[in-house]
Amino acid sequence: MLYGKRLRGLSIAAFVTLTAGIALAFFYAPMDADQGFMQKIFYVHVPLAMVALGGFVFGGAMAIQHLRTRDPRYDLRSYVAIHLSLILGAGVLITGSIWARASWGHWWVWDEPTLVSFLIVFLLYATYQPLRFSIDDPEKQARYASVFAITAGAFVPLNFLAVRLAQAYTHPRVFATANGGLPARMQVAFYVMLVGMALLYATLWKYEMASKSTSWQLRRLRAKLAGEESAAPRGRSAAPSLPTTT
């Protein structure tokens, strides 16, 4: 299967939307009366977090498909989704920390339930790669990784609930929820950024899928041309592998 199709269009769309979103956030959305310029990080931080969580859930859904169909392609989709969400997750924690420093004077605050939940989720998913890496058999690796992805996907909402309830009070926040007390012009910028982030995620996902499946096809062709033995043995890897003979 080719994943390179429509990649160019998607890349351009992601670039244009993100540029537009950043322009809107800086020039169109009003300056926050309370937090001033620092509030602009909100337009990066929150869409990033939402897209990263969405990616984890997508990875879980692909893992369910993998266990149902046993098609290694679904495992690859799940792997790429989780792996990209982890990278985005690091971005979420860094931007969140900067924002916390700017508005509360500390790099990390424990009574901000969403950020704390995100840290726990991030720590859990950080074991995804070591888990894959320490199982040699590719089929078993895929199966166990899928079980992990589904468990972790179900854990996310439960964890958010528990952490939110654990806070006696939450910090008084200027924008209680993303769509609640937000002025219309801020909302426009926010939603454009959200769409842009989602497009960026989709683009990166497709790029990695294209790269991975191309190298698989290459291996398969090599094996076909020069015989099974000529292909270099595949080293131990956390990345899923498709069978070279089909």
Partner: peptide, 22 residues
């Protein structure tokens, strides 16, 4: 899960402790 991996004892707390956070 962990018993099938090479890193067995290493993975148990890494997997279980975040899951048990609630």
């Amino acid at each position: 899960i962990a018993v099938q991996t090479r890193a067995r004892d290493l993975l148990v707390p890494l997997l279980a402790l975040p899951l048990l956070m609630p």
